[in-house]
C-alpha cells in the first residue's frame, strides 16, 4: 500500500443558497462542512448518518457532479479540479440506491452497460460487446439478459446491471450510495457478497454510504459518522462498533435493531430537536439532542481530536477541555 491515499478530501465545504419564499433573501445551507477524509487503496469507508446530514452531497462532490464551495478533492494526490471530467469518470463511478431509477427504461441492458465505453470511445463495437459480456459474467448475470429491458428484470438483477455499468471502465473507486436499501432482504445479501467479492478481485476502494449500520459493520474497514455536514467521528470498524466515542455514534449504535427477541426497543435518549440545517444550533451542532451536553457545548464548537483511536469531534474526548473544566 502506497503512502498517497487514493482519494482525499481536504477541508471540503459545500454550501447551497436556499431561497425562502418568493421575496426572501437566499440563506446559505452548508450541506458539507469542512470535511477532511482519506481513503487508502482497498479501504471500504462506511459513511453513516441521518438523511439530510450531507452524505449524498458529499458523494456528488466526489463524483465531480457538484463543485465544492471550498476545499479540494484529490485523486492520487492530484486535485480533482485539474482533471477533466472524462479522466475522473474512469476512476470514480457510482452505484445508486434505487435500481428502478438508475437504469434508463427505454434502453436495452447491453446499451446501458456499454454506455461508458461508447462515451469514452473505448475500442470498437466488437471489443465493446466482448467487454460487456465479460462484466456481465463478473456480476453474475447470464448473457441472455443482454437484450432485455430493465422492466423485464427483478430489483436484484437491475442492481447487478448498475454494478456492471459502474465497473465496465475498471474504475478504482466506487461510491455506493445505499446500494441495498431498496432491495429485499434475501437479495441484499447477494449484492453485499458481490460487492465484497468484486473489491477483493479488482482491488476496489469503496465509499459505502448507508444508514444500515449492521451492513456497514459487516462490509466496511473504516467508518465516518456524519452529523449536519460534519464528520463527528472517524475510526476503524472495530473501534467504532466496539467502543463508539461520540454520543451521536453511541446513539446510532444503540438504535440498531439486531434480531434478538430477548431485547426491547432501545431508548436512545436523543430527543426530537432535529436541527434545521439552514439555521444550525450554536456551539456543538449536536448539543440540543445530546444526552451528555454541558454548558460548554452550547457555546463552543468542539475541535477535531485525532488520536490513536481515531478522530472524534466532542468536548468529552478533548483532553484540553477536560483539564480546563476540571
Amino acid at each position: 500500500m502506497t503512502d498517497t491515499p487514493v482519494l482525499e478530501l481536504r477541508n471540503v465545504t459545500k454550501t447551497y443558497k436556499i431561497k425562502q419564499g418568493l421575496f426572501g433573501t437566499p440563506k446559505p445551507l452548508t450541506a458539507v462542512n469542512d470535511v477532511t477524509l482519506k481513503l487508502n487503496k482497498g479501504d471500504v469507508l462506511g459513511l453513516v448518518g441521518e438523511s439530510g446530514c450531507g452524505k449524498s452531497t458529499l458523494a456528488k462532490v466526489l463524483l465531480g457532479l457538484e463543485a465544492p464551495t471550498s476545499g479540494e478533492v484529490l485523486v492520487d494526490g492530484k486535485a480533482l479540479g485539474g482533471q477533466d471530467r472524462l479522466a475522473l469518470a474512469r476512476r470514480i463511478q457510482p452505484i445508486f440506491q434505487d435500481p428502478y431509477s438508475s437504469l434508463n427504461p427505454r434502453k436495452r441492458i447491453q446499451d446501458i452497460i456499454a454506455l461508458p465505453l461508447r462515451v469514452h470511445g473505448v475500442g470498437n463495437e466488437a471489443s465493446r460487446e466482448k467487454a460487456v459480456r465479460e462484466i456481465l459474467d463478473v456480476v453474475g448475470l447470464p448473457a441472455r439478459v443482454l437484450t432485455n429491458y430493465p422492466s423485464q428484470m427483478s430489483g436484484g438483477q437491475r442492481q447487478r446491471v448498475a454494478i456492471a455499468r459502474a465497473l465496465v471502465m475498471k474504475p478504482e473507486i466506487v461510491i455506493c450510495d445505499e446500494p441495498t436499501s431498496a432491495l429485499d432482504v434475501s437479495v441484499q445479501s447477494q449484492i453485499l457478497n458481490l460487492l465484497g467479492d468484486l473489491r477483493r478481485e479488482f482491488g476496489l476502494t469503496y465509499l459505502f454510504i448507508s444508514h444500515n449500520l449492521a451492513v456497514v459493520e459487516h462490509l466496511a474497514t473504516e467508518v465516518a459518522v456524519m452529523y449536519l455536514g460534519r464528520i463527528v467521528e472517524k475510526t476503524t470498524v472495530a473501534n467504532l462498533f466496539d467502543a463508539p466515542r461520540h454520543p451521536y455514534s453511541q446513539a446510532l449504535l444503540k438504535s440498531v435493531l439486531t434480531p434478538d427477541p430477548s431485547m426491547d426497543v432501545p431508548e436512545t435518549h436523543l430527543g426530537m430537536a432535529y436541527p434545521n440545517p439552514i439555521d444550525p444550533p450554536s456551539g456543538c451542532y449536536f448539543h440540543p439532542r445530546c444526552p451528555a451536553a454541558t454548558k460548554l457545548c452550547e457555546t463552543r464548537a468542539p475541535r477535531a481530536v485525532q488520536d490513536a483511536k481515531g478522530l472524534v469531534e466532542c468536548h468529552l474526548h478533548d483532553e484540553d477541555v477536560a483539564m480546563t473544566t476540571a
Binding site: A89, S101, K107, M169
Partner: peptide, 20 residues
C-alpha cells in the same frame, strides 16, 4: 432520475444526455 446522474458521472456530454 438516477440514470441521468449516472450518465453524467460516466462523463457523457450534455447533448448526448439530452438526446439519449
Amino acid at each position: 432520475r438516477d440514470y441521468v446522474t449516472a450518465a453524467r458521472a460516466i462523463g457523457a456530454s450534455t447533448p448526448r444526455i439530452i438526446w439519449s
